[in-house]
C-alpha cells in the first residue's frame, strides 16, 4: 500500500471531521431556531462550518512537506 503522506493523513482527518459535522446527529443540534446576526442558526452553522473546513484544507494542503514523486515524461 501507498504510504500515506503527512498531508494526506491530515486531510483524511479533516474528511472525517467534516463528515461528522455535516451529518446527523450533529446537524440536528442546530435545528433549534434562533438567529446569529440575523441569520438562522442552522444556516449560519452550515455555512460557517463549511468555510472553516475549507480554510483548514487550505492550510493543510498549502504546506509543502511531502509530495509523491512526479510522474515521468508523458509518452
Amino acid at each position: 500500500m501507498m504510504k500515506a503522506s503527512l498531508t494526506g493523513q491530515r486531510l483524511v482527518v479533516l474528511f472525517f471531521l467534516g463528515l461528522v459535522a455535516f451529518n446527523f446527529p450533529v446537524l440536528g443540534l442546530f435545528e433549534k431556531g434562533g438567529t446569529v446576526f440575523g441569520v438562522p442558526v442552522l444556516y449560519a452553522y452550515a455555512y460557517g462550518a463549511w468555510a472553516a473546513l475549507i480554510f483548514a484544507m487550505a492550510r493543510v494542503a498549502g504546506r509543502r512537506d511531502d509530495v509523491p514523486p512526479a510522474s515521468g515524461p508523458r509518452g
Binding site: M2, L11, V12, F15, W50, I54, M57, A61
Partner: peptide, 12 residues
C-alpha cells in the same frame, strides 16, 4: 458539501 468533503480525500 459532498464534493467539499471528498476533495479533502483527493490527495489520496
Amino acid at each position: 458539501l459532498g464534493p467539499t468533503l471528498v476533495f479533502s480525500l483527493w490527495w489520496l
